[in-house]
């Protein structure tokens, strides 16, 4: 009944892989995203009350910080989140105008700002909070996966990646075809146990998250023993050990 067809296996599905093990929560990706996109395909990304109380604005990428677990064993996790370009994007399904769509050729979920009526329903349908309403223009906007960069002939080949990926100082963001099981990103996901957010809702996000590795704080974690063997240098006779050590300059 729906006009939206789920992607077939093996179909190109561009997306991001975000490494929670190395993300330091610096917000670089969020700001660089804003910077690129405010002059890009979805321009502008307006800011309201930018120099006053209650400032807010349109951002396609936001960095959360969580703590998981208790006490010394808790882990602080910095957690970037943008559109996950879901394989089953209800945001597209609910859209009454077709302004929201998922591109067949690469799986990117986009909004056509020229046909959007600003009903906000897609933002209700997105469990992840990846939709951004532009109050000023009255239309919905969202992460475009930098569609105006990744195929842009005016940029050098190496620069044809999303802005957030190219700027991340901690190399915590990876971009590629997650529909291809042999791509670098798919292999990374397989190796590191990449996971989906809220899998129970069945949106089948394309973007994956790599888990933070376990802390290494038990004896033997580096191959070293729990403590060093004393060499008998304690006490008065201790320094004798070093007395006739043959050394040279």
């Amino acid at each position: 009944m729906t006009s939206y067809v789920s992607p077939a296996t093996g179909q190109k599905q561009l997306g991001l892989v975000i490494d929670l093990d190395t993300c330091v929560g610096c917000h670089a990706c969020a700001v660089n995203c804003k910077e690129w996109n405010t002059g890009g395909h979805s321009a502008p990304l307006p800011d309201y009350a930018p120099y006053a109380a209650d400032a807010s604005g349109v951002w396609f990428n936001r960095i959360h910080s969580f703590e998981a677990g208790e006490g010394d064993d808790s882990r602080t996790v910095h957690f970037p989140k943008s559109c996950l370009h879901c394989a089953e994007p209800a945001c597209v399904e609910v859209c009454p105008t077709g302004a929201s769509y998922k591109r067949e050729e690469d799986g990117i979920v986009l909004v056509n700002a020229d046909t959007c009526i600003g009903c906000k329903l897609c933002s209700w349908a997105c469990p992840y909070g990846a939709r951004e309403f532009d109050e000023d223009a009255g239309v919905m906007k969202k992460c475009t996966l930098c569609i105006d960069r990744i195929y842009n002939d005016n940029l050098d080949e190496v620069d044809r990646v999303p802005a957030c990926v190219s700027t991340c100082p901690a190399s915590a963001r990876h971009f590629g075809d997650l529909g291809d099981p042999n791509s670098t990103v798919s292999r990374l996901v397989a190796e590191r146990g990449g996971f989906d957010l809220m899998p129970e809702l069945g949106y089948k996000p394309i973007n994956k998250y790599l888990p933070a590795r376990a802390a290494r704080k038990t004896a033997g974690c580096t191959g070293a023993p729990a403590a060093l063997e004393p060499a008998g240098v304690d006490g008065a006779k201790g320094l004798l050990r070093w007395l006739d050590r043959a050394l040279s300059r």
């Binding site: 959360h64 969580f66 998981a68 208790e70 957690f79 469990p127």
Partner: peptide, 16 residues
Amino acid sequence: ATGLGARGTVRVLDAP
């Protein structure tokens, strides 16, 4: 929502 449940309760430290 965060996939961090294996480590225990997940609490917000800072919002974006």
